[in-house]
Computed example of a mutant assay.
Amino acid sequence: MTHQNDLSRSRVDATAIAPLIEAQRITRRDAQRGQVLLHPTDFALHAGQRVVLTGPSGSGKSVFLRALALLDPLDGGVLHWHGHAIAHAQIPRYRRHIAYLRQRPALIDGTVEDNLRYPYSLAVYRDAAFDAARAQALFDAAGRGPGFLARATDELSGGEAQIVALVRVLQLDPEALLLDEPTASLDPESARAVETLIAQWFEHERAARATVWVSHDPAQAQRVGERHITMRAGVLEAPASAQADMGALR
């Protein structure tokens, strides 16, 4: 019995220290041209980490983030979530917890509130409900006061649309944010509002959350990240193994 308890405890301990996401030799290719977009890549993201990914345009940063989010099929390798390989049937649930935010968000026609309510119409969120007060509190933190929920999306500026897209994700309580240059096209005020929202979300539950943020702005990279990695021609040019990650947390 003692031996069985020890084995059970070992499994629990292993799960507790497992990365949120661990990529093992993941690859992506252009299906039409056969070009390798992402060379075999190892990467681990632990709870409590804020990672910044930099590199030249066209180097594969977006390809890498979309692969981590399982938005595009992998051509090789495997992703683990909390130490377990992700079965095909688990992908919608995985995407609920590992959220990808792109540079130019897609909003549905209607109001800001319509956009925030939309995710709750999906089967994967059937156990959750829209909370207008919480949504407004997030908008307040971004400097968008009363009445913003009723705004029509076709009247929003680019910065406001990005804030709406971010709040739409944050209200769903993801574990990790994969941020693909979310402020690249924004004015300084809107960019800082986005940074503030993400920082507050992260600090609220730092021990359980993580970010990977693609940025071309060196000053922003210093503000939003503590671990810096680089992508060049589809190759991740920094130690990104689980062992390296654990060392970074000590």
Rank of each mutant, 00 (worst) to 15 (best):
R151S: 07
D131P: 07
A221K: 08
L7H: 03
L249W: 05
V63A: 07
Q162H: 00
A176N: 04
G225Q: 13
L177H: 08
A142P: 01
A142S: 14
R206Y: 05
R144N: 12
L149I: 09
Q49F: 01
A128I: 08
L172F: 00
G58R: 05
D30Q: 13
P19Y: 01
H3D: 15
G225R: 13
I21Q: 01
G83L: 04
L170Q: 06
P239T: 09
A242H: 11
R33A: 04
E113W: 05
L178N: 08
D75K: 06
P182M: 05
P182H: 05
L249Q: 12
V167C: 03
Q24S: 15
A129Q: 15
H46D: 06
V194G: 04
V36T: 15
D180E: 10
V52G: 14
R250L: 10
R232Q: 11
D42V: 06
A85P: 12
N5R: 13
H228F: 11
R66Q: 13
A129E: 11
A18W: 03
L122A: 09
R33C: 04
T196K: 13
V214I: 15
V212H: 06
I86P: 07
F64H: 07
A233T: 06
S59W: 01
L197V: 08
L122I: 06
F202G: 03
A23H: 07
H97A: 10
I86M: 00
A161M: 05
H228T: 02
S241H: 09
V12G: 03
R11Y: 12
A99S: 14
R93C: 05
N5I: 10
A248C: 04
L186F: 09
D187I: 07
G145L: 04
A128S: 14
E189W: 04
A16R: 15
A31W: 02
R104L: 10
F202P: 02
I91F: 00
D187E: 02
A176P: 06
Q243L: 10
S215M: 03
T111C: 08
I163P: 05
A208S: 14
V212R: 09
A219G: 02
V124Y: 08
V36Q: 14
M231D: 09
T15E: 15
D30V: 11
Q32N: 10
Y120K: 09
H88V: 14
A18L: 00
D42T: 10
G83S: 10
L249M: 15
V212M: 09
D75A: 00
E181V: 02
L166H: 02
G145M: 07
T183L: 08
L170Y: 01
L177Q: 08
I108W: 06
G55Q: 03
A47G: 10
Q200V: 06
G34I: 01
L20D: 05
Q35S: 12
A133D: 15
D140A: 07
H97N: 13
V78Q: 15
A14Y: 06
P182C: 08
A221F: 09
Q4D: 15
F43C: 05
E205M: 02
Q103F: 03
A123K: 13
S57M: 03
Y100W: 11
L149C: 08
A47I: 05
V36E: 11
A142M: 14
D154A: 07
F130I: 10
